[in-house]
Amino acid sequence: MTLISTQQQTILDVDQLCWHVHSRVILDNISCSINKGSFTGVLGPNGAGKSTLLRCFYRYMKPTSGVVRYIGDDIQTLSPTEYAKQVAVVLQHTPQDFQLKVADVVALGLTPHKSWLSRLDGNDHAAVQAAMTQVGVSDKQADNFETLSGGEKQRVMIARAIVQKPQVLIMDEPTSHLDVKYQIQIMELAKSLGITVIASFHDLNLAASMCDNLLLLKGGKLVASGSPKSVITEHQLSKVFDVCTKVSEHPQHSAPLVTYYYGYVAGTDHEE
């Protein structure tokens, strides 16, 4: 199930992916392909399996069955260090009690590229400085990470990912606790990196505006995939989220714009 043109290179290929906890099915036979350089959003209600799917992508969890391939190789056959050079992760919750200066947190992204106990050299320090400048936190480099705002912390974590030099950036609801301004800025920053980005969203309008392609989950199943216009429809939103909506075009870029109706009867479509 290719998300975009088959002429583009597939970077992650997911084939019949399942993940179970005892008898409970969390992911159910998911197959999709994600192409190099694309920005893919993962949508679905709470409990749909979004975070579990991403955890399988970055090897925090091993599928019960099925396979995830990175440029043709089963990711389970790659060494942790080798895979960490290719895939970086930014999570919803930044680390707590991280008693490090901002520059030191960003430098942690170099870990997959350094031997045990090796010191940072001039090129490493230059890479850290460049990443902090790119995300706009160079003026915070000597500050304790714990003193930063939520948006600043997410910028630092993206800077850490930049020095990791990945081909894929996976973001699990990275904007859930941020103000609207920082939600937009963080996702625009991720999009500007020019690498493959896979991110889960609760905000449908943010996902529609930022993403090239979407995966829509419900109950652990992939119910739709493709462009935002093909996935974000009134019928699909009613079926998956059990809400009444009006989907129009955003006045700036023509992406789907979702308006919600209130006082509706759950489970019914709104029709003009």
Rank of each mutant, 00 (worst) to 15 (best):
D139C: 09
P174K: 06
A126L: 11
P166L: 02
D124R: 00
G122R: 14
V128I: 15
M171L: 11
S192W: 03
L169C: 05
M157N: 05
G151Y: 13
I198R: 04
I184C: 03
L217G: 11
Q167P: 01
C211I: 07
P174H: 08
K140G: 08
I162N: 04
E173H: 04
E188Q: 15
A159K: 01
A207T: 05
N205S: 04
S115M: 11
V156N: 02
L148D: 05
Q129E: 15
D121L: 10
Q185M: 13
K218I: 07
N205P: 03
I162G: 00
D124A: 06
V163A: 02
L217R: 11
L206E: 12
R160Y: 00
T175D: 12
I198M: 02
K165C: 10
M157F: 13
Q141I: 12
S115V: 09
M210V: 13
T196Y: 11
A161E: 05
T133E: 15
N144W: 07
R155E: 06
L169A: 05
I184V: 15
Q167G: 04
A190D: 08
L117T: 08
G136L: 05
F145E: 01
N144R: 07
S118V: 09
V168L: 00
N205F: 03
L193H: 06
H125D: 09
Q185P: 08
N123A: 14
K181H: 11
A127K: 02
S192T: 04
L214W: 06
I195T: 03
I170T: 05
Q183R: 09
R155H: 08
N205T: 04
Y182W: 13
I198V: 13
N123L: 11
A207E: 06
S149F: 10
K218Y: 08
V156C: 01
F201G: 03
S138K: 11
V156L: 01
T196F: 08
H177Y: 15
A207P: 00
I198D: 01
L215Q: 06
V156I: 08
S192H: 03
P166Q: 06
H202P: 09
I195E: 00
Q141A: 15
Q129V: 11
F145G: 02
M157K: 07
V156A: 01
D139L: 11
F145W: 05
G194A: 10
A126M: 12
R160H: 05
Q164Y: 03
T175Y: 11
V163F: 01
Q141W: 14
I195S: 00
A142K: 13
S209A: 15
Q185K: 14
N144F: 08
D143P: 05
A161W: 00
I195H: 01
R155A: 01
S115P: 09
G150Q: 07
L193Q: 04
E152P: 00
Q183P: 07
A199N: 04
A131I: 08
I184G: 07
K218R: 12
S149D: 11
D172M: 03
S209K: 15
R119D: 09
H202A: 08
L215E: 02
L215M: 05
K191F: 10
D143G: 05
V168S: 00
A142H: 14
M132F: 09
G151C: 10
A126Y: 08
V137R: 03
G136K: 07
A161F: 02
I158Y: 03
L216C: 09
A126C: 08
K218S: 12
P174F: 05
